[in-house]
């Protein structure tokens, strides 16, 4: 018995030590990604299709957009897939990325408790809804983590002429964590939350929360994809990374994205510009 235990432990250790170098294997790339695309199950659906076609393993590191960009700037990824256009353009402008392509879109929605303390349920004007939340000092849970969703939310507050930081810790609750964690907090304390629709549809701990605001064109949520630039990061697997980007932008990749359903609903709407595709081969 004891011998078996020792053998098993040694096997685990040896496997642990030997797994290390092998795992950084040849035909794989690392994608620094926003969380919504991972948490909604999109990658689980499209990556096997890509793998089957090319044999390339795509390893996804799902963090907030801010952290994903930061990691890519440290050269710790081959492809960047996020949703904050101005930050993405800055990333390319500074030479970290080769080129940015529109990939797909969906939209943001506001979710809230059935009591609807700010009286905004059923409206489609995000700015007015935010003003009402601030006026009523209704609880609002913000990401507060410099993610793509958080950047968008801050822009909307600004457009609404509200400085939510003055209510910080009172009605404005910054969780400093991911979309799912923030939704858990929001549902827990009965606070409004702005979330991308994909995460909301695939989120399971909704309690009695419902979508209260949707349909404002300002709530548009564009995702972009960028190959990390080999000129800045010599270790980048450019060929495999480009292959993945090309596939995502191709008719086949776009079709795969568009056909992903969750609870019968389409989560992401492909909108790559065909022109860009031809240019990159």
């Amino acid at each position: 018995m004891m011998r078996m235990v020792v053998v098993a432990a040694v096997a685990a250790v040896v496997a642990g030590l030997s797994a290390a170098p092998a795992s950084a294997s040849d035909k794989s790339i690392i994608v620094q990604s926003t969380t919504s695309t991972a948490n909604s199950g999109l990658y689980d659906y499209i990556l096997p299709i890509f793998k089957k076609k090319t044999g390339v393993n795509v390893n996804v590191v799902a963090v907030g957009t801010g952290q994903a960009i930061k990691n890519a700037q440290n050269c710790d990824g081959d492809v960047l897939l996020v949703h904050a256009k101005s930050s993405e353009e800055k990333f390319v402008g500074e030479g970290y990325g080769v080129e940015r392509f529109d990939l797909m879109y969906n939209d943001f929605v506001f979710v809230g408790p059935p009591s609807d303390p700010a009286g905004i349920a059923g409206t489609n004007d995000a700015e007015a809804a935010m003003k009402a939340i601030a006026d009523k000092r209704a609880l609002f849970a913000s990401r507060g983590d410099d993610s793509g969703t958080h950047k968008k939310e801050r822009k909307l507050w600004e457009a609404a002429g509200v400085d939510p930081s003055r209510g910080s810790g009172k009605w404005y609750r910054e969780t400093g964590s991911g979309m799912g964690a923030t939704l858990n907090v929001g549902v827990g304390m009965g606070a409004y939350v702005m979330t991308d629709r994909a995460t909301w549809i695939s989120f399971k701990n909704r309690g009695d929360f419902k979508i209260v605001v949707e349909g404002d064109k300002n709530l548009f949520n564009q995702y972009g994809v960028i190959l990390v630039n080999q000129a800045k990061c010599p270790h980048v697997k450019s060929r495999l990374g480009q292959q993945f980007v090309n596939w995502l932008l191709s008719a086949e990749g776009q079709q795969a994205i568009g056909s992903y359903r969750r609870s019968g609903q389409q989560l992401f709407f492909p909108n790559a510009v065909q022109q860009a595709m031809e240019k990159s081969g």
């Binding site: 996804v60 590191v61 799912g180 964690a181 939704l183 989120f203 399971k204 701990n205 909704r206």
Partner: peptide
């Protein structure tokens, strides 16, 4: 580790992931 599926996902990071998906 980056919580990469089939590469660096361990029990604790899987728990954190499912929590963030709201699958308590």
């Amino acid at each position: 580790g980056g919580n990469i599926d089939h590469l660096t996902r361990v029990m604790t990071t899987a728990i954190a992931l499912e929590t963030s998906k709201g699958d308590l």
